[in-house]
Amino acid sequence: MNEIIFFGENEEPILIKNEPDTITKPIQFKFENENENENEKQIKQISSGNNSTIFLFKNGKAIEYLNENPSKIQIENIQKVIVGQENEAILTIEGNVFAKGEDINPNNTNEFINISSLIEDTNDRIIQDIVSGWCSIYLLTSNQNVYGIGLNDWSQLGFDSKILKETKKPILMMKNVSKIFSGNSSRHVFLLNSNQELFGCGDNQYSQVGLGKSRKETKIQKLTKIQNIPKGKIIDIQCGMGHSIMLIENENENENPKRKLYSCGFYLSNGLGKDEDTYEFTEIKSSLFENDDNILDISCGDSHTLILTSKGKLIGFGDNEYNQLGTGDTERQLIPIQIELPKLRFNEDISNYHVSCGNYRSFLYYSNQN
Rank of each mutant, 00 (worst) to 15 (best):
S287R: 12
G210M: 13
N195Q: 14
S132F: 11
N51A: 09
G101E: 05
K179H: 13
K17V: 02
Q227L: 15
P336W: 00
T141Y: 06
E340Y: 00
N323M: 05
I4F: 04
E217F: 13
I115S: 05
Q42W: 08
F55M: 14
S47D: 13
I220R: 12
N33R: 14
A89Y: 01
I63D: 04
T327V: 13
S269L: 12
N254W: 00
N77I: 11
G183E: 15
Y65T: 06
D121G: 04
L191T: 12
N33V: 09
Y360K: 14
S362W: 01
E197P: 10
Y366R: 07
S142T: 14
K313S: 06
L268K: 15
D297N: 15
T309Q: 10
T309N: 00
K343W: 00
K80Q: 11
I248G: 08
E86M: 03
E88I: 06
I235M: 07
N59F: 01
N228H: 10
T330P: 02
Q45P: 03
G318I: 01
G158H: 09
K233N: 11
L268D: 02
S47Y: 10
E76D: 12
K343L: 03
I339M: 01
S303G: 15
M241Q: 12
N87V: 01
T218C: 09
T53Q: 11
S351P: 00
K41W: 07
F281A: 05
S178I: 11
D103Q: 10
Y279K: 13
P170E: 13
T22Y: 09
K162S: 14
K72L: 06
N193H: 09
I113R: 01
L164N: 03
Q144M: 01
D319R: 11
P342L: 04
M173N: 06
R187V: 05
N176E: 12
D275T: 10
N51P: 01
E102N: 02
